[in-house]
Amino acid sequence: MEAFDTLIAVLDSTVRLSVPLLFAALAGLYSERSGVFDIGLEGKMLAGAFAAGAAAAVTGSAWAGLAAAVVVSVFFALAHGFASITHRGNQIVSGVAINFIAAGSTIILGQAWFSQGGRTPLLSAEGRFNALHLPFADAMRDIPIVGPIYSELLSGHSLLVYLAFLLVPFTWWALFRTRFGLRLRAVGENPAAVDTAGISVAWLRYRAVICTGVLTGLAGTYLALAQNAGFVKDMTAGRGFIALAALIFAKWKPVPVMFACLLFGFLDAFAIRIQGTPLPVIGRVPVQLMQALPYILTVVLLAGFIGRAIPPRAGGVPYVKER
């Protein structure tokens, strides 16, 4: 029974840890499926988290924080679009630039506005997205097996957690069952064909990067207003890159993206849980190995040893209309 409780606890933190990855990876999915590579997920998420923390601290409202995060993230996403769609700049270079601008400006502005060493003031309950209790969660707690699963694992998360998991089927539907999704995927594979059909490549790609901005804003909001009570400097700590890894790991498909994020979240939760305690068969596993595992797995996947990750064909190539 104790093992079962431990399992539930680990799975519970898996869910919590994979949510920011899931938001960010789905964000990347829209952009990259439209042919715009985005390694600036980390920066947009960080900027979103700062905006959420700052706005929630000033107004005292979590929703104002969410709105600010989305606005700021979309602004950064549009900057990426301006450079890589309108001016046909190098998308990787633009993404790198956005990561740096976000990393520096969140610290500078945070220090200037709040003077707390780059963090935003600690938020009260109104300023955060708090845990929701699903109906009958308390009543069902004592039922064996089903009870803990329902009341610990499924209930007691913030609104954003449920939103993140609802976005998975939504994204699948939007990409594979709507006209917009068909065009978005087409523009990532063969923009010339989309152009020939009389659809604006630039406008389609701009809409895709706006979706990316909204979702990275949600990822940042989750970090600052649900997982923590305020923004802490450099709080994304490479999650944007793990999300990118998850996106590649899942071969740019929404449902596999969810499983990849859950896997990487599980590795993280597991690493925290077993810190220092030796495992039965392999003995003591260094924490650093567990931390590096998502990256190692992604490289192995990219190398084509476990299936092959083939990116959208027009990804990274700016579209030039023939003259």
Partner: peptide, 15 residues
């Protein structure tokens, strides 16, 4: 400096 670095990469690189 990190901001300036980012801006230089943006304007001298991507833009």
């Amino acid at each position: 400096i990190v901001i300036i670095q980012g801006l230089v990469i943006m304007f001298a690189g991507a833009l």
